[in-house]
Nucleic acid binder design. Structure first.
Lengths: 211, 211
DNA sequence: CCGAGAGGCTAACGATCCCTAGCCTCGCTG
DNA sequence: CAGCGAGGCTAGGGATCGTTAGCCTCTCGG
């Protein structure tokens, strides 16, 4: 092994950037590598050197792109939360019918946890490794997400369109059934993301006794 | 702080054992303390000194009761798995009706994740920190548990008592909705373990279209 | 009443790990 | 074409941590 760095494993079109990705692109690759490693070995089980090696640089060089390891984790989580939130809002905005909103929201929830399983998985497993200030913020955002989901259920009940025994417990069940997807789903498994999303959406309709 | 250990926070009846719990009881306390700390700070985030402090001894003294930190984790997980498995078998043995078996199995599943949320939480979050040999064994046991759940669903379908689109996906949903409980449930929350178990059992019946 | 073992303790080794300091190279820009 | 800044690298400081070694005390069986 020589001293020369050789960055060319999924390089840009092949035109410029001979030695390494420029600026932001490099940073993106670092985040992705960190995500994968954090999921595989855990946050504390992952070394800055590990992350560096994954993008063909040495550990200390990472600090030219990132402020700290904690920041890396916090940024990954923020990115993830923002993404689900956006998908949720889009689903709700797609229709005026409460029941349909709920179905689409569940589908979006499931779709996200299947398509971005690493992000979702990390987001639920490494919460305790966030610094207090980060944890507080991200905790709030997660709560807000759950709340907007529950409001959907409550709205359906208020409109007499749903039949649920406990809106609170039912909402948790809806969320959990999607969150769990991040643990077992595999892109190359027997069912596609879309099939899964539809399936669980249908399941949700049964759970809330939609009419 | 003197040099004397003072173990008497939930001591035995007060008769013998003046200085410390004897043998197995001490070991049990260590396991419980480790469980709590592993959940709170994560396996790698917990120090042997932390665990020792929780039972009023120094870190190195733990090795008089435990072979290694890894063993501690593996033992906690084994204990947990064996417990769910037993609850599941008991539920299935309680009746001959397939649909009722499924309902009871879901209730048992949920009950376990609520009542032993620390064990369950640890079991799903720290799998990657197990040594390969332990992980293989525990992974198999988890798979077996899932399989026996799915068989219940498939039996119900075969008997024409259930209406499900995908037994596999539905089973995952049933399991996930219980597993998630370990994350948010609090003993002192608005609903009791029993209410929750019944609620989710009812939900399960809807999900599988029981008749 | 004595001897042994169960179960504490301190000291310390060896292995990491995060991060900083300081240096060098190379590509772009003026 | 000169020089500067982006972005690498090595060396190393400072803090832990798991685990072992070796010692001491207290309890309990004979």
């Amino acid at each position: 092994m020589g001293t020369q760095a050789h960055a060319h494993q999924q390089a840009t079109p092949a035109a410029p950037a001979r030695l390494a990705l420029r600026g932001a692109a490099r940073r993106e690759r670092i985040l992705d590598a960190a995500l994968e490693l954090f999921v595989e070995r855990g946050y504390l089980g992952t070394t800055m050197d590990d992350i560096g090696a994954a993008v063909d640089i040495k550990g200390p060089s990472l600090y030219k792109h990132v402020r700290s390891k904690h920041d890396l984790l916090a940024e990954l989580m923020s990115r993830s939360i923002a993404s689900v939130h956006a998908a949720h809002d889009e689903a709700v905005a797609a229709t005026d019918d409460v029941v349909e909103q709920l179905r689409l929201a569940v589908e979006a929830h499931v779709r996200f946890h299947a398509r971005h399983r690493l992000d979702a998985f990390l987001g639920s497993r490494e919460l305790h490794n966030l610094l207090p200030e980060h944890r507080a913020r991200i905790g709030r955002e997660r709560k807000a997400y759950e709340r907007s989901f529950r409001r959907l259920v409550e709205a359906g009940v208020a409109a007499g369109r749903l039949d649920v025994r406990s809106p609170k417990l039912t909402t948790f069940a809806l969320l959990d059934m999607g969150t769990g997807v991040a643990v077992w789903f595999r892109e190359d498994g027997p069912s596609s993301v879309e099939q899964l999303a539809r399936h669980h959406g249908e399941l949700a309709m049964r759970m809330v006794g939609a009419t």
